[in-house]
């Protein structure tokens, strides 16, 4: 079990949320609570960088869906960056890899 650590920064293309640790049943609420504090403007990308993510369960998937909705409601788009293989496998089973934009790393994702 790892704690969830999150940090946000702003880039030219939009906010970047870095997620480290476990995005699971216990921690996903923190992620969900953080979303409303992140402003996504029309045309911007909300990049969620999962490079340091250790574990993601179905609650974590729900949190990512909430992030997708949050970005869309602001007129922007969610981009997942540096998704670990085990999480990518889950995203692929549930079909979200076809719906969400996934980039290998956050530099590409932010267009930097």
């Amino acid at each position: 079990m790892n704690a969830l650590k999150m940090s946000t920064r702003d880039t030219a293309s939009g906010p970047v949320l870095e997620v480290a640790g476990d995005l699971d049943y216990l921690n996903a609420g923190q992620f969900r609570d953080l979303l409303p504090t992140i402003t996504v403007r029309p045309g911007q990308r909300l990049v969620v960088d999962l490079g340091a993510l250790d574990f993601c369960d179905s609650s974590g998937i729900t949190a990512l869906i909430a992030a997708h909705h949050h970005a869309q409601s602001g007129g922007g788009q969610l981009v997942l960056a540096a998704v670990p293989a085990n999480t990518l496998r889950i995203l692929s089973i549930v079909g979200l890899d076809q719906v969400l934009t996934i980039h290998p790393d956050s530099e590409v994702a932010t267009g930097a």
Partner: peptide, 14 residues
């Protein structure tokens, strides 16, 4: 059955 999406997430789902 690849590409089938979670049910209920989006208004239109493949």
């Amino acid at each position: 059955t690849p590409g089938g999406l979670l049910v209920g997430v989006l208004p239109a789902a493949p």
